[in-house]
Design a protein around this nucleic acid. Structure first.
Lengths: 175, 175
DNA sequence: TTTTCCATGTAACTCGTTACATGATTTC
DNA sequence: GAAATCATGTAACGAGTTACATGGAAAA
């Protein structure tokens, strides 16, 4: 449902076509969703069928015609509902990356530390990217802020775990 | 793949049957995965077919026979591979809850604050639960520690957003 | 005695992905 | 002239869920 919410929310401000919506989501809201183009087209088709959004075909030159969507009254009502549902609910996040962490002590601490340093690299890069992302005004900016905060915390955490492993590795001398 | 890793990792310490594995995962590792019983059975069957694990049937009285699984050499090799892959990779987390945050300013600040206070309730409860969970030794404990840290950060973040909204609501006098 | 727990599994379904197909336009 | 971008979509597949079915044992 959060994918529908995102599409409706974006369409509420500016009418757009599928390609635009999909681009915008992967560019600026990849932290909330990772829906791909075919999924976006599918959802738009479904919501159009349900009467939540309406399309208007436009064409430029010989290019493929664009289906530009805008919210209907029904769509607006559903947007309001989905927004309230989403805000009130606490959706626990699933950390697939913690699966490995659970078995960290099956590896010699030195090697575990090295592997986590690779992870730290990816994490640092993601943080860098989030920090240098264009600032959006209003609540879109809030999402980015949240992401930066979260990545900072994650980075600090991984580094702490690495430090602990390195201490362990040096005391047991079996690096 | 992280589900396979979890199952293999647990089987590596103690041989278990599907029901046990599924229970353990939802009880103690719900933060890394939310796989359900049918999925667990399915994955176990698949891994058995691939020769990663082997089963031994046991029976107690008239109860349904248990399929108790243990790692094979091939399974051990794959566990090692999956563990290293998981530790080295940074898997970004998807925050479906941020979808609503992106459109926070479409709502009057007072109402937005109230909705988020409901969310805060669920969050606080989850934190409480994580804090009072039984302490597991070793790296299983690490996962729990991570979860507590994460939930604390989330709680602080939501409270900060709520505070901002309340300030806004009181200055614009349209609560 | 009714509910909960133990223990397994199947079938239908949902959501979303990847890969594929098309074709014009812009950029290098 | 080749590659990337714009713009749409279909088809096949995959992972995981929900609902259903079974039946004994333990607890309330």
């Amino acid at each position: 449902m959060s994918n529908e919410l995102l599409l409706l929310g974006l369409l509420r401000s500016h009418q757009m076509h599928g390609y635009q919506l999909s681009e915008f989501l992967t560019r600026n809201l990849s932290t909330c969703t990772d829906l791909k183009k075919p999924t976006a087209y599918f959802l738009l088709g479904k919501m159009a069928e349900q009467g939540w959004i309406a399309e208007e075909q436009t064409q430029e030159g010989n290019r493929p015609p664009r289906r530009v969507y805008h919210l209907t009254t029904l769509g607006e009502a559903n947007f309001q509902r989905l927004l309230r549902e989403n805000l009130a609910a606490f959706e626990p996040v699933t950390m697939r990356g913690d699966a490995g962490l659970a078995f960290l002590d099956f590896l010699p601490p030195g090697e575990a530390a090295e592997l986590l340093m690779v992870r730290r690299g990816g994490l640092a890069q993601a943080l860098e990217q989030a920090r240098s992302a264009p600032h959006h005004a209003g609540s879109l900016g809030l999402v980015l802020e949240h992401q930066v905060l979260h990545l900072q915390a994650e980075l600090a955490w991984v580094e702490q775990v690495i430090a602990g492993l390195q201490r362990e590795a040096s005391t047991t001398q079996n690096k």
